[in-house]
Design a protein around this nucleic acid. Sequence first.
DNA 1: TGTCGTGATCTGTGATCACAGTTAAGTTGG
DNA 2: CCAACTTAACTGTGATCACAGATCACGACA
Lengths: 259, 259
Amino acid sequence: MIGHVQPSPVAAAAMADDAPGAAETPRDPWVLDEVGALARETLGERVTAELRALLVAGRLAPGEKLSLRRVAEALGVSMMPVREAVSRLAADGALEVLPGRAVRVPVLTLAQFRELTRLRLVVEGFAAEEAARKATPDQLARIAAHEAAFRQAASAEAPDPAGAVAANRDLHFALYEAAGMPSLIEMIERLWLKAGPILNLDMRHEPRRLKGGRAMQEHEKLLAALRRGDAAAARAALEADIGAAAAHIEQTGQLKESD
Amino acid sequence: MIGHVQPSPVAAAAMADDAPGAAETPRDPWVLDEVGALARETLGERVTAELRALLVAGRLAPGEKLSLRRVAEALGVSMMPVREAVSRLAADGALEVLPGRAVRVPVLTLAQFRELTRLRLVVEGFAAEEAARKATPDQLARIAAHEAAFRQAASAEAPDPAGAVAANRDLHFALYEAAGMPSLIEMIERLWLKAGPILNLDMRHEPRRLKGGRAMQEHEKLLAALRRGDAAAARAALEADIGAAAAHIEQTGQLKESD
DNA sequence: TGTCGTGATCTGTGATCACAGTTAAGTTGG
DNA sequence: CCAACTTAACTGTGATCACAGATCACGACA
């Protein structure tokens, strides 16, 4: 149940119905017992994961309206699983259903965005501290790999916005995973779900922000801090990263003034 | 929480290029403007609220199994709204749906409970600091009232467990509300939803813990700190309150040993 | 020409039905 | 008397239908 889908390159194609292997009657202790219960993902969960990916990647713009029937048809499923997915995401505040109208991606107020940023500083900052204390060499290597991927996508002559967004997300969540606190990761995912649309939509539209290099600098500092187990420095670097991105968003003025 | 209706039915467009200075045509102040959109609570939301209340109050014990049809019949509604409610709560981790079996209240591992406690210390501690800085006299009075209610319910000759649980919850959330950060409150509600069953189920079964008075002491310190705007002291008192309760729970050993 | 009424169309919400899988009781065979 | 099998009841999941409310476009009236 905790198991979310691995951050994977977003392939938002139609979801084909592949028949999952039927469970064979387990008689004796067998080799296949180790593979555990094969994740019989329900349709609703798959739709939820799909929409989540679209949201954090900024491919659904704030204010964009969704229709249950349209989404259902696009994904090749009935309206039912979509309802469930939208219900969950609406409960998380990642979507909002207006009374009689439609369901849409929330448009954040400036105040709401600032609150979200403050919460991110508190929560993700804590995660960075914890990761600096407990990260294993293996986890550090994974973080470094994503950092390299981000640098490549961001500093290339022709920046790859989508790739940079994905690498940035993978880098951050590899860091948070190193903290070893599943509920903390869920909390952060929820924050990203809310802030993702503006943050990454913007990065998609203004790829030159990437070349500014501020994010890369902080990522580098972060990695160095992690390697020497410096919790305070890791937190500072992450806070600088978050703060810089938030400041840029506020400059663009894509946020609603008030409610 | 979600339902907001735009006051103006006319100017809802302008999503792409919106000039911030564009003022609406001022209509005459109409009497009916004051009556806001009457809260058309959907059935699913009401069921969700009902189950949430039952969970945080500890009236649904960990491991207890629920049946969609049973709950639907008990609440006098169809199975549909219950499905939606369970979907949301399951997405929050407040309930869990086992693959082919039933839906039940999660039984926390010791490790999970400790992680939850740490997160509560971080998040609710931050909320206490913020509240100490920003609480208005009105909000302080409300917190004090709940503190008095808790003291009465806990220190009476015949302790009132249900009343104490409710007063304790009201006290805490009045505090968090004083921080003025809606998303923060949602975050804390989610944490309480997960920890509520064990915390309050125990308080219900062991009312003598109330008479120990540890909670009352910390509540008193907390209130004093709030009144003099001492953020650090407020955080310390709240952390002591949370820590004491958590330590008691761990002693009782109602938690699963491992996964 | 501007404004309001009116109908078609689309929205989410709720109910009912069908189905595969699991659980638990009932029953049979040893 | 106990174990294993069979069957019946119940589980969540998904699909389909019905319905009130909202949106939008077109047309009538002033």
